[in-house]
């Protein structure tokens, strides 16, 4: 079984802070991390590898330094890594990203299962996985928390919905986006770490993928960001201080006036 895991390097939004005066993003000390949900996808792939004999290839599209993210997952035990990097890829929306990723997966060939995190924490779109599946014309399931092979051609997945859970049966090859319930990502091992350090990571650009510069990156995107702005600040903030009785009274009145149901 050949599993491809798609990962993304993202700014560590956890440490992003808003400057209270300028109300802008403070990026000082913000490092790049592997999208946390993608680490769950890597873990899910490794679990399949633990249980059977699978080969795992991890791919990412990004600037040259995204190679770091690939070495990190190699040190956790995946077999191979592939970097999709080209100046032409910059500014890609989810469509253009999906075009690039699906071209790479097609070129890899013989892929039985594609795993992605449910979404990336920088964009939170949750679109790339389903779009890649669509471009590859394979079935997919999103928000999956459990996976098991049914037979050589079928996979049983349990997915989380807003209302509960659903169990789906998919024919393979298929694409699955996973949530954290698939299992906590394992840490690297020393042997894998040493191997990762020396591993050769191929870099594919538009030439290798046989794509036109107009099909990828900003040129190949359908959507365009026209404005980025800070979320409007709450100007109506009330701070309640004083004695306990006063505070209780004030909050109660505040919620009553706001007509909160149930108060």
């Amino acid at each position: 079984m050949h599993i491809v895991v798609c990962i993304k390097q993202v700014p560590d939004t956890k440490n992003v802070r808003i400057d209270p005066d300028t109300h802008t993003l403070v990026r000082q000390g913000v490092e790049s991390i592997i999208n946390p949900f993608d680490l769950f996808a890597v873990e899910a792939a490794l679990q399949i590898k633990d249980a059977s004999s699978a080969t795992i290839t991890v791919i990412t599209m990004g600037p040259p330094q995204a190679e770091e993210a690939l070495r990190e997952v190699l040190s956790r035990g995946v077999d191979a890594a592939l970097l999709l990097s080209d100046r032409a890829f910059a500014g890609a929306d989810t469509w253009a990203t999906s075009v690039t990723l699906s071209a790479a997966i097609r070129k890899l060939g013989n892929v039985d299962l594609i795993l992605c995190g449910k979404q990336a924490v920088d964009g939170d779109t949750a679109q790339v996985g389903p779009e890649v599946a669509t471009l590859l014309d394979i079935p997919y399931a999103t928000f999956v928390k459990k996976m098991e092979p049914l037979d050589a051609q079928h996979l049983k997945v349990t997915r989380q919905t807003d209302e509960g859970t659903e169990v789906w049966k998919l024919s393979t090859p298929a694409l699955i986006t996973v949530i954290k319930e698939v299992g906590e990502p394992r840490l690297p091992s020393l042997r894998h770490k040493m191997r990762a350090k020396k591993a050769a990571i191929p870099v594919w650009g538009i030439a290798e993928l046989g794509l036109d510069a107009n099909d990828v990156g900003l040129c190949g995107s359908f959507t365009q960001v026209v404005r980025v702005f800070s979320p409007p600040r709450r100007t109506d903030r009330v701070i309640i201080e004083g004695s306990l009785e006063e505070q209780v009274e004030q909050l109660y009145r505040y919620l009553k006036e706001a007509k909160v149901p149930g108060i």
Partner: peptide, 21 residues
């Protein structure tokens, strides 16, 4: 969980942009 799951397939199938959430 339904909209975010299948709408990307619609967008990719008709080849158009999609903005999430």
């Amino acid at each position: 969980s339904i909209g975010r799951s299948f709408i990307p397939r619609v967008a990719a199938s008709v080849r158009t942009g999609l903005t999430a959430d």
